[in-house]
Computed example of a mutant assay.
Amino acid sequence: MPPANGYAAYVFDAYGTLFDVHAAVRRHAADIGPDGPLLSEIWRNKQLEYSWVRALMGAYVDFWQLTEQALDFALARFPAVDPKHRDALLEAYWKLDCYEEVPSVLKALKDRGAKLAILSNGSPEMLESAVRNAALDSVLDDVFSVDQLRTFKATPSVYEMVTTAYRLYPDAVSFQSSNRWDIAGAKKFGFRTVWINRASNPDEYRDYSPNVVLPNLGQL
């Protein structure tokens, strides 16, 4: 069977694309109170900011440590949230919900002959837990973690892990991410890019535009 839509591999970012990064706070919303949504947003934003800064500094620590540090900042930013919830929030992050359409989309692509992989900033342990919790391990061929390189996206060598492993030219790979900066990095590397714009955010990085913009993976 030929690969789906002519692409030999479909590669997905994990957090925000396959897995809902706000599910951890939402799971404990009653305990956290009205600051929950903003706390979750800052937790995510700081997690990403720390990855970019450490990549630029050449001072790698794994993504789980950044996740803990980002949550500590968010809890300090919202002192009305009792810090006793820290452990519960971190535990919930190991078992984030995947988006509703994810299992059926991945199965359909797999049935059409494409290789399927995750390419993520997440640590191997985080990704293994998330994939197993969402029962996606039966459809994914590979899970690529930046931990192998000890840097973070959007460093070009991260995207190169896929082409090296699969012995493909970049334009044979379709890369899907909800993070616009990640799409810019992948586009510069040469991937066909699909921005999953779940939040209807305005476009940016216009010199590295996505090939396709979709509201969710269901239309892939």
Rank of each mutant, 00 (worst) to 15 (best):
R198F: 10
N179T: 05
K187Q: 15
G185A: 05
R150M: 13
M161F: 01
Y169E: 14
T155C: 07
T155P: 00
S145F: 05
R198D: 12
M161Q: 13
R150S: 14
A199L: 15
T155D: 13
S200E: 15
P202N: 11
T193D: 14
K188H: 13
S145I: 02
S178I: 09
R192N: 13
D147Q: 11
T193G: 13
K153D: 05
T163F: 02
V173E: 01
T193R: 13
L140H: 06
D171R: 08
Y159L: 06
V158N: 01
V139T: 09
I196V: 15
N197T: 11
D141W: 14
P202W: 11
R150W: 07
F189P: 03
Y166R: 13
A186N: 06
V139I: 06
V194R: 10
R198W: 12
S145D: 03
L149K: 00
V143T: 13
D171Y: 09
F152R: 01
T163H: 04
V158D: 00
V194T: 12
S157H: 02
Q148P: 01
V146H: 00
K188A: 15
G185C: 07
F189R: 02
F152C: 03
S177N: 07
W181M: 12
R180Y: 12
E160A: 10
D182E: 15
S174H: 09
S200N: 15
L140C: 08
V173I: 14
A186R: 08
S157R: 12
T164W: 03
N179K: 06
P156M: 09
F152T: 02
F175E: 04
D182S: 11
W181Q: 13
F191G: 08
F191Q: 09
Q176W: 14
S200A: 15
T151M: 11
N197V: 10
F144S: 04
E204M: 10
R180S: 05
Q176G: 00
S157P: 00
F152K: 03
F191D: 07
L168S: 05
P156S: 08
Y166A: 05
V162N: 02
S177R: 06
M161W: 01
K187Y: 11
S200D: 15
N201E: 15
Q148Y: 04
N179I: 04
S178F: 15
I196L: 13
S178C: 14
D171C: 05
V139H: 03
D141Q: 12
M161R: 01
F191N: 09
A186C: 05
R167D: 14
T155H: 11
S157N: 08
A186L: 04
R150F: 06
V158G: 00
S157E: 15
A165C: 04
S177F: 10
V194Y: 08
W195S: 11
T155V: 10
E204G: 06
P156V: 07
R192Q: 07
D203I: 03
K188Y: 05
